[in-house]
Simulated scan of single mutants.
Amino acid sequence: MTLSSVDLIHENMLQRQSVGLLADPAPNKQQLDRAFQAALTAPDHHRLKPTRFVIVSEEKRQEFGHLLSQSMADFEDIDPAQVERVRAHPLRAPLLVLALTELTDHPKVPHYEQILSTGAAVQNFLLSLQSQGFSTIWRTGAVVESNTLKKALGLQVRDYISGIIYIGTTDKALQHRTDHSVEGHISIWQNDTDLEAK
């Protein structure tokens, strides 16, 4: 049976999953631009454009890993082994993209809405890449709270590194996901005051 375009879109969403170790190929510029275009359709109250992306290319991964390890110095009592693990993290995929949230003070758009906007943008980005045949994982960890790292990325202390997205291809057979029951996650609102009045 041939799936309709609507079915294909839903199947892509239902089968989205994170993959930890990724290899070449990574998306080319055209494929990546397509994913960024999808990302930037995310809801954005008053069009403040809080989301920014930074690409870490394959050639820059070790340099970025060094920055990550330096940034861990912002935290007390860090295990040196953890610092080395963080240094090696960028080598887990051929391409990394950082999702940043630059906050704007606005009377009608609280900061949390701007953070949620970036979250929606990242989800669109992941789904677009998956539809093009790539795998991803969205990571954070303590290092994204580092002011050293924020400064290196041109952010203010109050801004957010909302994720480090690892991108590539997997040859691992991914198990078909079936755990999509809505049971326990959906309810119908009742106005208890009105019910009592009756």
Rank of each mutant, 00 (worst) to 15 (best):
P90L: 14
L91H: 09
R92A: 05
R92P: 01
A93N: 05
P94Y: 06
P94I: 12
P94G: 10
P94K: 07
L95V: 12
L95Q: 10
L95S: 10
L95M: 13
L96C: 11
L96Y: 08
L100M: 04
T101D: 02
T101E: 03
E102Q: 15
E102W: 13
E102A: 14
E102D: 15
E102I: 15
L103W: 00
T104E: 15
H106I: 00
K108Q: 02
K108G: 00
K108T: 00
V109D: 12
P110A: 09
P110D: 12
P110N: 10
H111I: 02
H111L: 04
Y112K: 03
Y112D: 06
Q114E: 05
Q114R: 01
L116A: 09
T118D: 06
T118K: 03
G119L: 03
G119A: 03
A120Y: 09
A121H: 05
F125N: 10
L126E: 11
L127I: 08
S128C: 13
S128N: 11
S128V: 12
S128D: 14
L129S: 01
L129C: 00
Q130S: 06
Q130C: 03
Q130M: 01
Q130G: 02
S131Q: 13
S131P: 14
S131W: 13
Q132Y: 13
G133K: 14
F134H: 09
F134S: 11
F134I: 10
F134E: 09
S135T: 09
T136E: 07
T136F: 05
W138N: 09
W138H: 08
W138M: 09
T140S: 12
G141Q: 00
G141A: 01
A142Q: 14
A142R: 15
A142S: 14
V143Y: 13
V143Q: 07
V144G: 01
E145Q: 11
N147A: 13
N147S: 13
T148H: 12
L149N: 11
L149A: 11
K150W: 02
A152F: 04
A152Y: 03
L153N: 11
G154F: 09
L155R: 11
L155V: 07
V157K: 15
R158Q: 06
D159Y: 09
Y160R: 05
S162C: 01
G163Y: 09
I165K: 10
I165E: 11
Y166P: 01
Y166I: 02
I167Q: 05
T170C: 08
T170D: 08
T170M: 07
A173K: 10
L174Q: 05
L174M: 08
H176M: 10
R177Q: 15
T178A: 12
T178I: 11
S181G: 15
V182P: 05
E183F: 04
G184R: 09
G184Y: 10
S187T: 14
I188P: 05
I188N: 14
W189Q: 07
Q190F: 08
Q190H: 14
N191R: 06
N191A: 02
N191F: 02
D192K: 01
D192P: 01
T193W: 00
T193H: 03
D194Q: 05
D194L: 03
D194M: 00
L195Y: 02
L195W: 04
K198D: 00
K198S: 04
K198H: 02
K198M: 06
